[in-house]
Amino acid sequence: MTWLLLVVGLVLLVIGADVLVKGAARLASNFGVPALVVGLTVVAFGTSAPELAVSVKAAYSGQAELAIANVVGSNIMNILFILGLSAVISPLLISRQLIRQDVPIMVALSALAVFMAYDGSISRVEAGILAAGLFGYTFFLFYQGKKKGVDVVDEEVEEMLKTNVPMWQNILLVIVGLVLLVLGARWLVQSAVELATAWGINEAVIGLTIVAVGTSLPELVTSVVATMKGQRDIAVGNVVGSNIFNILCVLGISGVVSPTPLLAGEQLASFDIPVMLGVAALCLPLFFIGASLNRIEGLLFLALYTAYVWILIAMTLSLGYLAQLQTAVLFGLVPVVVLYVVVALVLDLRKRRAQVST
């Protein structure tokens, strides 16, 4: 029954987010809100709706560590698994804006999360700073979009707003979407806590794995479908944007509404959140090289995610080979990734210099 609740909760979260985005986007359009603003606010918030619903429910119910673990696990999965899988399917193109603006913002926010959680918790004041940053970032995106021109709108948003639907139907979609999100979040958090109790493990581990994977399903579907359609830049932008919103929106809002500070246990503070920062920082050099993410780099991402989850399971179950596994990853896989990045950067810089000289 617990597993059934978990699966149903995940399904309701995904469907609820989709229904809510469609209803809210069209409702905003009914009130004369420009398509650009709808794309930068309603649709952007919608991709993080499952994470937000789960983290707010967890924080308000007293499972404060689950709230942070959900965000950290989702961000790690978004980069290593979703981008890795998408790149293996087809090499991804990286836009100049992502390299110069969005990825550095993602890295900076990940570093801020490490700093805030260093003492073992994220207070309401710190969460308030993140929430304020959310409004500042949204305003910045809106200003940037207006500067580029109002016609620069995502095709999916334009297609969504083309459909002429009565206002009452849009209001109904918003209500249904919210109800599904609330129910999905309640059942998912309840089943996650029951599983953690039954297995005798920390709630954070469930949040970093099962819950994080479930709430990242919309990003997974969006990125893989975009890649298969040949929209290879959308796949990357979707993941980076989602990670930024997860930190600002999900951590910020769940921390503000939580009656107690969001907890970051020793493992979260010293291992998982730094891993989130590390994989975000890894994007900077890899995205810079050739403004793309090739299949080899996609496989490296998948290998890193497999190693991370494997270590997580070994730590949770106190497996006897944990020390050997950590040594193999630290002195085997990680140096291979670092060596690849250094060699690729050197070759890319030589290629750029050769192009300039000719």
Results as ranks from 00 to 15, higher is better:
Leu66Lys: 03
Gln101Tyr: 14
Ile68Lys: 01
Glu126Cys: 08
Met116Asn: 09
Val157Lys: 08
Leu66Asn: 07
Gly149Ala: 13
Lys146His: 06
Ile105Val: 15
Phe115Asp: 03
Leu112Pro: 01
Arg124Trp: 10
Met106Ser: 14
Pro91Ala: 10
Gly136Asp: 12
Ala87Val: 00
Ala131Gly: 07
Asp119His: 09
Pro91Ser: 13
Ser110Asn: 05
Val88Ser: 06
Ala87Phe: 01
Asn78Arg: 01
Lys146Val: 12
Val150Met: 09
Gly128Ile: 13
Ala127Pro: 00
Asp102Leu: 13
Gly120Lys: 02
Gly145Arg: 10
Ser121Phe: 12
Lys146Gly: 04
Gln101Val: 14
Val88Leu: 12
Ala69Gly: 11
Ala131His: 06
Arg100Leu: 15
Phe142Pro: 04
Met160Gln: 11
Leu112Arg: 07
Ser74Thr: 07
Ile122Asp: 06
Gly133Phe: 05
Gln101Phe: 15
Arg100Ser: 13
Ile105Cys: 07
Ala127Phe: 02
Met106Gln: 13
Tyr118Cys: 02
Ser110Asp: 03
Ala67Val: 04
Gly149His: 12
Ala69Leu: 04
Ala87Asp: 00
Val88Ala: 08
Leu130Gly: 05
Pro104Ser: 10
Val107Phe: 04
Ile68Trp: 05
Ser123Pro: 10
Asn70Phe: 07
Arg124Lys: 15
Gly145Met: 03
Ala117Val: 02
Val152Gly: 02
Asn75Trp: 10
Ser90Trp: 00
Val150His: 11
Val107Tyr: 00
Glu158Ser: 14
Ala69Glu: 01
Gly149Phe: 12
Gly128Asp: 11
Val103Glu: 10
Ala113Gln: 08
Ala67Asp: 06
Ile68Gln: 02
Gly120Ala: 02
Tyr137Arg: 05
Thr138His: 01
Glu156Leu: 10
Val157Ala: 11
Leu141Lys: 02
Phe81Trp: 07
Asp102Arg: 15
Ala113Asn: 04
Met77Thr: 02
Gln97Arg: 14
Leu98Arg: 01
Ile129Ser: 05
Gly133Leu: 06
Glu126Lys: 07
Val153Pro: 12
Leu85Gly: 03
Val152Pro: 07
Ile76His: 04
Ala113Thr: 15
Ala127Tyr: 05
Ile79Gln: 11
Met77Asn: 10
Leu83Cys: 09
Phe139Val: 15
Pro104His: 11
Val152Lys: 15
Asp154Gln: 13
Glu155Gln: 14
Thr138Arg: 09
Ala131Gln: 05
Thr138Leu: 15
Asn78Tyr: 00
Thr138Tyr: 12
Met106Val: 08
Tyr118Trp: 13
Lys147Glu: 15
Gly73Tyr: 12
Ile99Ala: 12
Leu98His: 09
Ala111Met: 07
Ser90Gln: 08
Phe139Asn: 06
Pro91Thr: 10
Ser121Glu: 14
Ser74Ile: 04
Val71Ala: 03
Ser95Cys: 10
Ala127Arg: 00
Ile76Pro: 01
Glu155Gly: 04
Val103Gly: 05
Ile99Arg: 15
Leu161Glu: 04
Asp151Met: 11
Val72Phe: 02
Ile76Trp: 00
Leu93Pro: 00
Val103Tyr: 08
Lys147Phe: 09
Asp102Gly: 03
Phe135Glu: 09
Ala69Arg: 03
Gln97Thr: 12
Ala111Gly: 14
Leu85Val: 01
Ala67Lys: 08
Gly145Lys: 01
Leu93Met: 13
Glu155Tyr: 11
Pro91Trp: 06
Tyr118Asn: 03
Gln97His: 05
Met160Ser: 11
Ser86Ile: 00
Lys146Thr: 03
Phe142Arg: 13
